[in-house]
Design a protein around this nucleic acid. Sequence first.
DNA 1: GCATTACCCTGAAAGC
DNA 2: TGCTTTCAGGGTAATG
Length: 274
Amino acid sequence: MPELPEVEVLRRSLEPRLVGRRIEGLDVHARSLREPISRRAFERAALGRRIERVRRRGKFLLVDLEGESTLVFHLGMSGRLTLAEASRPREPHEHLSLSLDGGERLRLRDPRRFGLALARPTRGLERDAHFARLGREPLDPPVDGVTLRALAAGRRVPVKNFVMDGRAVAGVGNIYATEALFRAGIRPTRSVTALTRASWDALAAAIVAVLREAIGSGGTTLNDFTDGAGARGEFQGALAVYGRAGETCGRCGGRVRRVVLGGRGTFYCPGCQR
DNA sequence: GCATTACCCTGAAAGC
DNA sequence: TGCTTTCAGGGTAATG
């Protein structure tokens, strides 16, 4: 499940290998992702163009091309974007591949098809429906408690739902919201209306720390995340509570619990998180 | 207007 | 062992 750190790790691995390359051909396969992949839009935007930049916005990977076009990718739950030899046969669930000069292909696989692949004009992209309501980036600059508290003003949701809500802060998904709340010592079920200033400060610091550490570890690979070259992440070994229901808390020796918030499995330590 | 739930999808894991 | 059922969740539409 690629969240901000995984997409950033992917971006860093792809950027040096993509920038300057020309897109010479493309294959689109018929099955739709969250939205259909428009062969026409991709052909018009990408064919014969050079790649100028590889950016990230929240969990979106943005590939800017010459000619003021941007290819937009969202990996959903199970998406993988890899750069590999053009001669390698198409894999199952490969929905799009771009052949580049130099004999490689950028391939998008996504078995569960929760992902997205779009071709859009670069200009005005931030006003596109997928980006218009997207919240602020948590890392640049690092988000602070005052900002978080202001973003939550007027809302009454459990703090976990707020942290995961992309309209407030972009890119923090279930794993990192869960881990940040553990580090901050805040129970995920607590209402945002009940947090003190000190709690907001601790939460902001925890979000920034956990995202940075995860990027430094190459992301979290639970099932199948890899960077653009196929390397797995290592942050799964650092997860304190996520996926550990019934296990012993490494900090206090209590038992980790699982609840469901916003339809997502949520893990916390009742001893450490109040 | 806000909060919550349902839905899309497939592979892995659990259950029988 | 092998089949069936359950579970996972990002984002958004529908419902409360």
